[in-house]
Design a protein around this nucleic acid. Sequence first.
DNA 1: TCACAGTCAATAGA
DNA 2: TCTATTGACTGTGA
Length: 622
Amino acid sequence: MRGSKREAVEILRSLMDPSVAESLQALERTAAWVNQVAQMRQMSSFQDIKEDSMGDSNPDRDAYSDKDFDDIPDSYEGLQDFVDIPATVQEFKAALESSGISQRFAAKFIMDSTSQGNLSFLLEKGKSKHWSELSCRGRLPYIRMRRWLDSPEEQRITLSQLSMTKEFKKTGPKDGSGRRGKFTLFQLMVLCRFFEEDQNPSLNTRMLLAEKLLVSLERITIWFQNQRARGFPAKRVLCLMSVDRQNAESEKAEFGRKYKNIQDDIQKRTQALTGALQNMAGTTAPSPTLNGTESNLSSSYFNGLSTETQSPSAGPRTMDLSSAPGSVRSLSASPHLSQRYKPYDIPPVWGNSDRYGNFTNYLLQQTTSSAGNSIQNPNVIQSDESNASMKKELGDLGMNLTPGRNLPEKSSGSTDPRPAFLVQNMVNSSSVFSRPYPHNAYQLGNIGQNGVPEKEGITMTKSSDFQIPISPAPKMSEMEMTSSKKQEKITNGNVGSISDHGDESNGPQSLRTIVKEEPKGDQGHIGSSVYNNHSPPTNNFSYDYPMGNHLNGHVNFASIKVENVEDDVNMSKPDRITASQSERSGKINGAYERAPSSPSLTNGRALNSELASMKKEVDRFN
DNA sequence: TCACAGTCAATAGA
DNA sequence: TCTATTGACTGTGA
């Protein structure tokens, strides 16, 4: 019956004038949408509809089927198909643009008084949403869009409303209730790290986070809910602070216009570093050989589990940790989840995948261990048999671990030691967060009492390809130190020394080693770092970051970041290097401006304020 | 009580 | 002033 009716309609249409037929078709579709929406509203629950007429809303269902179509009652005869949401969204956007209709207006007058923000969200979400993925409630806004697009009459009404509603122009906050707070950068970092580990943290975990971050449990819970629902948008914080090109590319694809911010950021920071390195190259005497430093690299613990060496001429390398045990990607167990949680390449902060896997296993062992409530310092290898492989690994690498302290027991007698463990790890971790500049870090010397290596090496390698280093800005005090005359007086190899080791192809200054003293941490640690810079002959170079990194927090977060905070806070102008640095360099004035790294961090004053508060938060953790 | 889908609306950036 | 982001909220079902 249904088929013959359709045939008749088609025959009638074929006899009509094309424009009339088109209008009629549009009217029919509009009527169908109106009818459908009206019926949906009459339902006591939108969810009921899926059982009756709309097909199911099971996201696991990957396509619209004939069954779904057959289930649609005759009253929906005008419905030729489900709404093609991406196409509808595209058309709707184009229509708004061509008609000069703002999202705000459209939200109010077309979308049945929804909010502008929601419309924006719907338009973005709709780009990749299939009809079958949405509940009936979720379909409504797209039906409205489709209905409006199919209805010239509705469009005319809208345009007349647009011309009449001048007063609609006035904007402004509605009630100024100020209900929303804002997470600090540090809070976000911690939350992100936890999210990486567990997208559904237990109540204990959330309580601990709330306690440690001085945030209500509700806010923590909601944050995790939002991240789960939105595909971990906060990963931006991670990606923006990494220097992984692949992440940068994915950022570009994923965040659209935001990529421009990132590009600007990259450009500014690259210029800054280029200028700084050129400046260094021009003021320091050449010296020794490349081999000596390379041997440091090859023997480096932090180059990973293998004995691979890192040639300064090698191009940048990144580790794909996305499939590593414990990575977020690996958590996507079902098609449903993999659809909702976009793949996220963890910044290569853990060295290679083996190392990451080992570390994750180690974490899990700690978490699931039933042995008492004592939470062990992750920096210290325990006598537990389950950690034997880790011990062996560290032993093979000549890792000389000093005894560490146990983390405090959880006062509530929680059975889940993981939260405290992770918090401590986060704080101690030398992750991308704690790195104020791009580098390739590896350990030199022993691990100090508080888990901080006495020395660490950092390399920057040149590459023929221009790579995108997305990284935090260069550390101000670092730049001061490297250009300071007094540093040159210090014997090579000692803290504070600068030495150049050239090679034949790239010239005498193509490799530079700077041994730097770490600032005093809150726990009284004094360490040093060695920075090896393969100074490029041209402006085009990249940062090979990081082949290896600190296994589980061997560099004190506070000892690095806090210093940077103070540098920033002490600056007379926000986001600028100190005057003395400007004077010395002359030509790099302004080059060290901290470029915007994320929307919430673009404001210099806000950033400084954020960093200052972060210092306090970090202090509290230690 | 919790998680989730959807939404509101404050806010930041262009 | 626009849109995009995101903290917070509502309604719902298990």
